[in-house]
Design a protein around this nucleic acid. Sequence first.
DNA 1: ACCTGCCCAGAACGATCGTTCTTAGAACGC
DNA 2: GCGTTCTAAGAACGATCGTTCTGGGCAGGT
Lengths: 199, 199
Amino acid sequence: MRVVDHDEARSRLLEAAEELYYRRGIHAVGMDQVRDRAGVSLARLYKLYPSKHHLVAAYLRVYGRRLRARLAESVERAAPAPAGSRARLLAAFESLRETIDTPGFRGCAFVNAWAELGGHGDESHLLVAEAVREHKTLLRDYLIGLAEDYPDPRGVGEQIHILVEGAMATSAVLGAEAARQARDSAATVLAAADGARRA
Amino acid sequence: MRVVDHDEARSRLLEAAEELYYRRGIHAVGMDQVRDRAGVSLARLYKLYPSKHHLVAAYLRVYGRRLRARLAESVERAAPAPAGSRARLLAAFESLRETIDTPGFRGCAFVNAWAELGGHGDESHLLVAEAVREHKTLLRDYLIGLAEDYPDPRGVGEQIHILVEGAMATSAVLGAEAARQARDSAATVLAAADGARRA
DNA sequence: ACCTGCCCAGAACGATCGTTCTTAGAACGC
DNA sequence: GCGTTCTAAGAACGATCGTTCTGGGCAGGT
């Protein structure tokens, strides 16, 4: 094998990208800054990720995977498997509250990336748009899965998902209290779905 | 008075800024493109708006004003004054659905601007961040006002606001169906608040 | 020891963008 | 008419950014 392995270089690059891109925004961070923070040469960076869009998409993919894993882990800890959909979905809001309360919270990284790069049809931007869409779809599907007890898991899961997105967008601009309001709304929506189930 | 009036130049600049910034993103549109579309010289542009951040903030302010006016008008049309809070708040979702169904919808312009410029503490960016915060606050306060019939108008309004934000963010990425789900959630939340009122 | 291939650090390039400057022209007060 | 002040059109400047290139060095195979 050759010198420092590619896997470590990759993970250091992704870690640096996450730190910098999320905190300062994507287009405000140059490739040199990623290189400096990761301690990886530019040549290697471009060998592993042939363009900035590739790096951004890779960062979003790995970050989304960790985010969803953290969410699932939090749900399993607060409301393990035998618990009902209601308890498990409400537990998801505990993870959301933690995310929003984290100092340096700047809204949903995927929505931010979408806003910066996702809009127009420029071909290379599709890489990023696809990564965002993938994460949102997987997150929504996970919530739909949590809602399996209800007669309409898809509807319930999608409504909970909208609350999660709304809480992140709102609390980024207007403060963390939105997380609590979103949880209250979720409890109401789930109570109504419970009522529908008994009816 | 001097030659072509400043007011027309201003409005043409703001119109051009709205068209270009919303469709292609802020940092993807240069000042020359705004100048070309508005038919106003660069010198004049910089006399009216001393920096790009000033122009962006002005665009957001005037666009937000029109957006909120359109929302209020839609509510007054669908559920005029004697109608109750429930009908008026649900009417707001009709305006939201129109916005989301508009071809070329790319999410909330304010969230997008926040993602591009709002995050870090750079001084000139505060202009934009302040404009975003102002719009979101006014929108939320308007919804709280619509909820006046409920015992907790603030809580109800904030929850409806979160649903609106979530619907925009979600439907930008995953499709317009989120608007309907958000309306369903709103109906549920309002029904619960109605129940609380009767209790 | 000598290639061969990969690596790093950093310079360099080309493009773009925000902003300012230059040049020239047109409208006004006197 | 003359200066003044505003304007439009665009060149120019300085900075930044994504990307590529160059030079020099270290590791292995034979």
